[in-house]
Design a protein around this nucleic acid. Sequence first.
RNA 1: UCCCGAGUAGCUCAGCCGGUUAGAGCAUCUGACUGUUAAUCAGAGGGUCGUCAGUUCGAGUCUGACCUCGGGAGCCA
Length: 501
Amino acid sequence: MYPAPREPRQPGPSRAFRAIMRDPPQAPQHAGSTRMNIVAIRDALAGRIDAGAPVTVRGWVRTRRDSKAGLSFVNLHDGSCFEPIQVVAPATLANYESEVRHLTAGCAIVARGTLVPSQGKGQAFEVQADAIEVLGWVDDPETYPIQPKPHSMEFLREVAHLRPRTNTFGAVTRVRHCMAQAVHRFFHERGFYWVNTPIITTSDAEGAGQMFRVSTLDLANLPRDERGGVDFRRDFFGRETFLTVSGQLAVEGYCLALGKVYTFGPTFRAENSNTTRHLAEFWMIEPEIAFADLDDDADLAEDFLKYIFKAVLDERGDDMAFFADKLEKTAVSRLEAFLAAPFARIDYSEAIDILEKAPRKFEFPVGWGADLQTEHERYLSEEHVGRPVVVMNYPEHIKAFYMRLNDDGRTVAAMDVLAPGIGEIIGGSQREERLDVLDRRMAQFGLDPAHYQWYRDLRRYGTVPHAGFGLGFERLVVYVCGLANIRDAIPYPRAPGVAEF
RNA sequence: UCCCGAGUAGCUCAGCCGGUUAGAGCAUCUGACUGUUAAUCAGAGGGUCGUCAGUUCGAGUCUGACCUCGGGAGCCA
């Protein structure tokens, strides 16, 4: 019967397990600890470890193949790179029949042995095992969700805690990390400071959508004010508060003191939008530069995107090759094309001209004063220009109050970066730095200046021209990886009705 | 929120015009075979056909409501 060898499945802490616990949590590099020769699979496969060296690899089983020649092949992944390593387990191992032959996808093991050139095809190196210790069995192999076969992305969303074990989500995770590191590196190298703007805010009129309320009031017994409304003076902060929808207004204060700053943090929108492009919780990047106009802003946006894409191509070739192979054929080539040419730049008015003369029909009408629809944006970047294009100077009434009014009095210094395959990827503007004009704009938008005294102060005390832009990090991840749904670009997505895990 | 589509084995799916005991591939288990590469071959187990109601002699199949998921639109990053 089969169950007998399963006995050791709930062992006490083994020696290997205790060793893992002792392993420095922040090993300086992938080379790992010299104690026990623990190595990352990435280093073993890349030839950074001498052939013949004793090695220990730790990870999760992807597949097991048995050979009657007296050995089994165990493919092991540990997250350090896309490829798993092949562990060759000879039948002479003490637990070969009792344990090794029963390994299934998802089992956690520690394999000690020797790194050797592979006798088989498909990999340069493999681990010839002297010992294999099973740290964690898979409770019920038949119902273990992650099988060595293609799964639908829809199914994997239902097992968001296990999907990082798949090729796809391992790759997305590494690429996302690479991009986040590149974001910080890009700004740091250019003298920007990372500013952490508040997550809890009182600004409720940034025009960026519905907000999540933050409150400690007892919902079943709300305090009332004189007029019968909810008395937020009794709430935690003594006033009504929400989760941030943007750090831009707050970061402007730091921009007008430190010159070049950016935010990179979580952002929340309570819109009931159920699409492949929206999340209720996402990460936004918002640089803000002083002594800068809209052209400086567009330059920064172009440099920024190219830097991120280049970093991914340079550092994550293994994962990108997988995306190009399995998810989106042009995953790599379109990034290369993106890097190859300068962005086009056109005025909004020019864009309207182009669209009106376009040899095709649009579902939504085109006309000066109307905002560009997704179909318009795609036509401009994909068909008319054929590469990323920055559209600048939009009609003032379709853009936010803080955008700088141009001399023509009917446009503002706003820009959208449109890219083939995605449409709008970045939105930005030069900010209105003149107090009198800002006040007029706020009145025009029906905003109460009393709520923006601190923002107005920035125009009263040493105001200078400044500009910035914002982009949703996950949308960038979607584009880079060739994903179809933004819920696959973040570990545990939050969306209307979706807050499991 | 609106429009459209889909829910059948652990996963991916087939199932005709309503009619006998609901099938396949993968996965799992057993056996054979092999330095194997998502191995191969043979066999076995595995199903309240999303839920509830209705039509019918008879419903996986037709009708309605609901639930869940997906795609599109709007909003936007």
